Amino acid sequence: MSPHEVKEQKLTATFKALIKLLKSKRFEDISITELTRTAGVSRTYYYRNFKTLDDVISAYEMLRIIQYLRQLPNNPVKLTFETMMTHYFQLVADDADDQLTLIAAGKEQVIIKAFNTSYHYLQKDNVEQIDEYDYDFLSGAVVNVSIHWLKNGMVESAELMGKKIRQFL
């Protein structure tokens, strides 16, 4: 296994341990020792890579988005905004239990920050350009709509949600 794969594996284990602990504890009551023990990683690993538990969430959310995008067909045509939003909603649906756990823990702002960072990353080459000041608006709007969609049981398809977000903007 490459060092990059080991790093991703440790991050995933740490995030999944955090989600597991959040199902029975308040976010504020989770200790680093308990998290690292549950994840099977060292405290040194944690402190070398993260300053806060929110950093674990942000790093994992970014990893998931990047992994998901790598699975998309390599198409020379630019992805449209609607297509990107459809893919985002599919990712949210795929991780619904984890997302709902984070929402219940009050970590919406961390999800919004990860979306914002990811969208900046994607903006460089793959999607239609938007004004710099629209990033925060877009991030908050999309994540808040995805939260509402999750809480309502994801009745609409990811494709329909992608269309709705495009229509809103």
Rank of each mutant, 00 (worst) to 15 (best):
H4C: 01
E5S: 13
K7V: 09
K10T: 04
K10F: 00
K10C: 00
L11N: 06
A13H: 10
T14G: 00
F15K: 07
F15P: 03
K16R: 14
K20A: 08
K20W: 09
K23Y: 00
R26D: 15
D29Q: 12
I30N: 02
I32E: 04
E34G: 03
L35I: 03
T36N: 04
R37M: 04
R37C: 02
V41K: 01
S42N: 04
R43P: 01
R43E: 00
Y45S: 00
Y46T: 07
Y47E: 01
R48Q: 14
R48S: 14
F50L: 02
K51L: 10
V56C: 01
S58N: 13
S58R: 14
E61R: 15
M62L: 15
I66L: 08
I66M: 11
Q71K: 15
Q71P: 03
Q71M: 14
L72D: 10
P73V: 11
N74I: 12
N75L: 10
L79C: 06
T80S: 15
E82W: 02
M85Y: 06
M85L: 09
T86W: 05
H87Q: 13
H87L: 07
F89G: 07
L91Y: 08
L91P: 09
V92D: 03
D95N: 15
D95M: 05
D97E: 14
L100E: 05
T101R: 04
T101Q: 07
A105L: 06
G106Q: 02
G106F: 03
G106Y: 06
K107S: 00
I111Q: 07
I112S: 00
T117L: 15
Y119F: 15
Y119G: 05
Y119A: 03
Y121K: 12
Q123G: 04
K124M: 06
N126Y: 14
V127Q: 07
E128P: 02
D134K: 13
Y135R: 09
D136R: 13
F137P: 02
F137I: 14
G140T: 11
V142P: 09
V142Y: 10
V143F: 10
V143N: 13
V145K: 08
I147G: 00
H148W: 07
L150N: 10
N152E: 14
G153R: 11
E156A: 08
E156T: 10
S157C: 02
A158L: 09
L160S: 06
L160Q: 12
L160C: 03
M161D: 07
M161H: 08
M161I: 11
K163P: 02
I165N: 06
I165G: 01
F168M: 14
